[in-house]
């Protein structure tokens, strides 16, 4: 089997829509992908703050498991998980660090397996015609602001795309029929790590992202990151208060928009579970002439 699927914790919790829609899209595309058995926490957002070794050993175990289970690549939907697992993969290239990690996890690391974000797999591994063949409801006229956040593109050693102006998701959206807008906030911080410690500053940053998406003329924001989404979606009300204006920007995962374009039911994709109402905008899209 090619891809070992690593769902991570968010996709069953705060990012349930991401989990549901990713599942549905993967199944719909009949991809060569299966969940890694016995996966564990990737260590994101806490481990690397206090123990560098733990922060790479935790994700390294997932790489080792995937390899044992015969996968060649690890597909990671969550941006934070991707960042950690990729970091472990990069660290394992250093023989000294690898030995250290192997000792901790009591598993062997060959260094052959690679971690990839689900986004880049969807964009690079599924060819145009295969994708086009699945599209039932093209996202005609939908102006999307592609928001990548920081975790997929920084630092350079683990980045899946250019850090200043990534285009991977923009290309995917174009292929789905949507119109990505040119805007300057693709990788600005969503304020994620400040939501609990400094909520006032955090929400200011969330608000800036939403403000510039709106100014760029977007109807909605699309992301590959559960943390960004919970900030932009859940805290949009607070952000609106801060900005003193209403925004009403639905925040989608790219898999939700893929699933919608494929004609999958909204409920299956979790589109009914958003804080900012997300179904109406999609329903208002022009229905293509049947043919």
């Amino acid at each position: 089997m090619r891809y070992g699927y690593y769902p991570g914790c968010s996709l069953t919790g705060t990012g349930i829509e991401y989990g549901l829609s990713a599942d549905a899209v993967i199944r719909h595309l009949n991809m060569d992908m299966k969940e890694i058995r016995d996966w564990n926490c990737c260590g994101a957002s806490s481990a690397h703050n206090h123990d560098p070794l733990l922060s790479i050993a935790l994700p390294a175990r997932n790489l080792a498991l995937a390899e044992q289970q015969g996968f060649r690549e690890v597909a990671v939907p969550c941006a934070a998980c991707y960042q950690r697992i990729k970091a472990a993969e990069v660290a394992a290239r250093d023989p000294l660090k690898r030995r250290e990690m192997e000792e901790v996890i009591e598993e062997e690391l060959s260094g052959a397996i690679v971690a990839r974000s689900l986004l880049e797999i969807m964009v690079h591994d599924i060819d145009d015609s295969a994708l086009a063949a699945q599209i039932r409801r093209p996202l005609q006229g939908l102006k999307v602001a592609c928001y990548y956040g920081c975790l997929l593109v920084k630092p350079r050693a683990i980045a899946m795309d250019e850090a200043e102006n990534p285009m991977t998701m923009d290309h995917l959206m174009e292929r789905l029929g949507a119109t990505p807008v040119e805007w300057g906030y693709k990788t600005e911080c969503c304020g994620g790590s400040l939501t609990l410690t400094r909520p006032d500053t955090g929400v200011q940053m969330t608000a800036e992202v939403l403000k510039y998406a709106k100014l760029a003329g977007a109807d909605c924001v699309v992301t590959p990151c559960p943390l960004c989404t919970s900030n932009l979606d859940m805290r949009q009300g607070t952000a609106e208060k801060k900005l003193g204006r209403s925004l009403g920007l639905p925040i989608y995962y790219f898999t939700e928009l893929m699933g919608f374009a494929f004609g999958l039911p909204m409920k299956t994709l979790g589109l009914d579970r958003h804080f900012v109402e997300a179904t109406g905008l999609l329903q208002s899209l022009p229905v293509p002439a049947s043919g």
């Binding site: 300057g184 510039y212 100014l215």
Partner: peptide, 8 residues
């Protein structure tokens, strides 16, 4: 300068 972007 860290960033330049267009708004309108």
């Amino acid at each position: 300068v860290s960033k330049i972007f267009q708004v309108g």
